[in-house]
């Protein structure tokens, strides 16, 4: 009797403990890639309108990952607040970039998501 109750409790707690891991695995970061290679050099900004990869996913954070970078840089100048839900249509992210003549800038904007607890 005691053993059966203990086993049920063990399964319950283990399920509770593993549930965030299972959900987190489903929410891989989304990546948006940009390439800029102007011979005479260039600068500008890229605006990303966020779309959630899954229902109940909200914006967590974003960062720049360079795949090619020659004499240039890209910076996120504005991003939504953590927890912003893209379904509202208000989550936008802006990246400002610049490279020298004969330069090149290939970068990815890596967006991390998190699941809304009450969805």
């Amino acid at each position: 009797m005691f053993i059966k109750r203990f086993t049920n409790q063990l399964i319950l707690f283990a399920g509770l403990a593993l549930s965030p891991v299972v959900f987190a695995a489903d929410l891989a970061p989304t990546k948006v890639e940009y390439q800029h290679a102007e011979e005479a050099g260039g600068k500008g900004s890229d605006v990303i309108k966020l779309t959630a990869p899954k229902a109940c996913a909200v914006f967590d954070d974003a960062r720049i990952v360079y795949t090619k970078r020659r004499y240039g840089q890209a910076n996120i100048i504005s991003k939504p607040a953590a927890g912003c839900n893209p379904s509202g249509g208000q989550c936008k992210l802006e990246v400002k970039w610049e490279h020298e003549p004969a330069g090149r800038l290939n970068y990815q904007v890596e967006i991390n998501w998190k699941l809304q607890s009450s969805c």
């Binding site: 005479a40 050099g41 260039g42 600068k43 004499y71 610049e98 490279h99 020298e100 003549p101």
Partner: peptide, 9 residues
């Protein structure tokens, strides 16, 4: 040579 940005370095 027309340059859109001023080179540095």
């Amino acid at each position: 040579v027309a340059l859109s940005t001023a080179p540095s370095g």
